[in-house]
Simulated scan of single mutants.
Amino acid sequence: MSDGPIYKVLFVNQGQNYEIYARQVHSSGLYGFVEVEQLLFGERAQVVVDPAEEKLKSEFDGVKRSYIPMHAIIRIDEVEKQGTAKVSDSQGGNVVTHFPFPAGSAPKPK
């Protein structure tokens, strides 16, 4: 009873790593963005409720489609089954930094 592939999307937002699951991920018509649709969250009928996932679910409540900047994407994986959506601080373990630009690359005034 598969409704198609499931994608795990890892991205950085305001200093935190987000891990979300979605049915559709593709390049956006908006230049420099990745379009994420049909977000997946755990069922509310479960006995155990994860407060972190509930917070993330409420943050994306009513969102039909999300546009994530390409430079914020860490990775996108096609997975066999949905995991738990979560938000974590990016200060531990894997640190994501912006691509460095050379200092003084702008022309100097004469």
Rank of each mutant, 00 (worst) to 15 (best):
E43N: 14
V63A: 06
A103E: 14
Y18K: 01
F60G: 00
G92E: 15
P109Y: 02
E54N: 04
G104Y: 03
K57G: 01
A45W: 06
Y67S: 08
T97R: 06
A103Y: 12
N17I: 12
V48N: 11
N94A: 11
R44M: 07
N13Y: 13
E37Q: 13
A103I: 10
H98N: 13
D89Y: 08
E35P: 07
E80G: 13
V34E: 04
V79Q: 01
V79A: 08
V63I: 13
P102D: 09
K57T: 04
H71D: 14
D89T: 10
E80L: 14
D77M: 09
D3S: 14
N17C: 07
P109H: 06
M70P: 04
E37R: 08
Q82N: 01
K57R: 13
G93H: 15
S105C: 08
S90K: 06
S90N: 08
R23G: 04
Q82Y: 00
A45Y: 03
L10E: 08
T84S: 06
E19Q: 11
P51E: 10
H98S: 15
Q38I: 11
A72R: 11
K57P: 02
Q38E: 10
D61I: 04
H98V: 09
Y7V: 00
Y18M: 07
V96L: 09
F99N: 10
I76G: 01
G93W: 13
F41M: 09
E35Y: 02
M1V: 13
S88L: 13
F41E: 05
D77K: 10
P51T: 03
K57W: 03
S28L: 11
S27L: 12
P69S: 06
K110Y: 09
G32Y: 02
G32F: 05
V49L: 06
K86Y: 02
V12G: 00
S66L: 06
K110V: 11
F99H: 10
S28Q: 13
F99T: 11
Y31G: 13
E59D: 12
V95K: 02
H71R: 12
F99S: 12
H71C: 13
D50Y: 00
L40V: 03
V49F: 01
V95Y: 03
Q91W: 06
S105M: 09
Q24Y: 15
A22T: 05
P109R: 06
P102V: 09
Y21F: 15
A72M: 12
I6Y: 02
E54M: 07
T97S: 13
V49A: 07
A52V: 15
V87N: 00
A52E: 13
P69D: 04
A103D: 11
F101E: 11
V25F: 01
Q91F: 05
G4R: 00
E35K: 06
R44L: 11
L40W: 05
E59A: 12
E53C: 11
E43T: 10
D3R: 14
V25T: 05
Y31M: 12
V36K: 00
G104S: 01
K108M: 06
D61G: 04
